[in-house]
Each structure stands twice: as C-alpha cells, then as structure tokens.
Simulated scan of single mutants.
Amino acid sequence: MTAPRSAEEQRRTEWAAALEEMEVEVLDAERSIRGDRADEIAAWGRRMEDWTPPTMLGPLPPDLRERAARLLQHQLAVAEELVERITQSQRQRDVAARMAYRPRPVAAFVDRAL
C-alpha cells in the first residue's frame, strides 16, 4: 500500500500535469506552423479563450519555476510566429482576392497596314 502524498507533493503533481498540457499545446501550434498548414494556423488565430491557471493549484512549486519560465519563452516565440504567419496569410489572401476579381484585359489586334 502506498503512503498518502503530502499536500505539497499533490500540488507539484498537479502543476506538472498543467505544464505538460501547456507544453503539448504549444508543440501542436508549432507543428501547425512548421507543417505550413494555413487552415490550422488561421484556427490558432481565431482562438478566443486565454489560459488561466486553475485556482485550486496554489502557487507554482519552486522546482518547476525554471520549466515554467522556459515554457513561457517558448509560448511567446510561437505566438509571435503565429501572428506573423496569420498576417502574412491575410495579405496573400487579399492579393489573391484582388487578382481573382479584377477584369482581365482582352487582347485587341489592330492591323495598321490597312
């Protein structure tokens, strides 16, 4: 039979799980960017909910602070790249839309020899 875990051990386990979930999400976003999948990239830009830490976790355990700081830097870098790619995609769509709907000139040949 296992001994009951202390509240501190329980908090550390829950925070580790929360960090793992966030790491998976940022890696998913990064894979969308690297895979050059425009629809997935745009979907990341349409997400409206911001992550808020669960209130029942309590303070971040000291031994997880470095991991959380690295994760934050990774999230910020991926978010910046997502914004750049979304902006680039919107510009490309705008150009494509203007090109697709603009009337194309009709070739006219005039015989000047007459």
Rank of each mutant, 00 (worst) to 15 (best):
E81Y: 05
E20R: 11
R112P: 03
V24L: 10
M1E: 06
A69K: 03
R34V: 13
W51D: 10
P53D: 09
R5I: 03
T2N: 07
A69W: 02
L60M: 12
A108L: 12
P103H: 07
S32D: 12
A38F: 05
P59D: 13
W51M: 10
R12V: 00
T55L: 14
R85E: 14
R112Q: 11
R5A: 12
Q73W: 00
I86D: 15
P4Q: 07
A38M: 11
M48A: 12
L76A: 04
D63F: 00
G35E: 12
R112T: 11
W44A: 07
I33P: 10
E84C: 02
P4M: 06
V83L: 07
R91N: 10
A18Q: 15
G35R: 09
M99S: 08
A17M: 07
Q73L: 10
P4W: 03
G35P: 00
L82R: 06
V26D: 07
A42F: 06
D111M: 10
P59T: 02
A77L: 06
V24H: 09
M48L: 14
R31P: 00
R112E: 13
V78W: 05
R85F: 02
L71I: 01
E40S: 00
P103L: 13
E30L: 08
A43W: 05
T55Y: 08
V83M: 08
L64C: 04
A79Q: 13
L71A: 05
R102C: 05
M56T: 12
R102H: 05
A77I: 01
L57R: 01
V106D: 09
E40I: 01
T2H: 07
E20G: 08
S6Y: 00
E80L: 07
E21N: 11
P103D: 14
R11F: 00
T2L: 11
M48Y: 09
D28G: 02
T87C: 08
S32K: 04
P54C: 04
L27C: 01
A38W: 09
R37Q: 08
R12H: 08
V83G: 08
R70L: 05
A107P: 10
E25A: 15
A100R: 15
R11P: 00
A96F: 08
M1P: 02
E9M: 06
R98Q: 13
A29Y: 06
P103T: 09
Q90I: 12
W15M: 05
W44I: 08
D36E: 15
M22I: 07
A43G: 01
A68C: 09
A42W: 09
E40H: 06
M99Q: 14
R34H: 04
E81A: 10
Q73M: 05
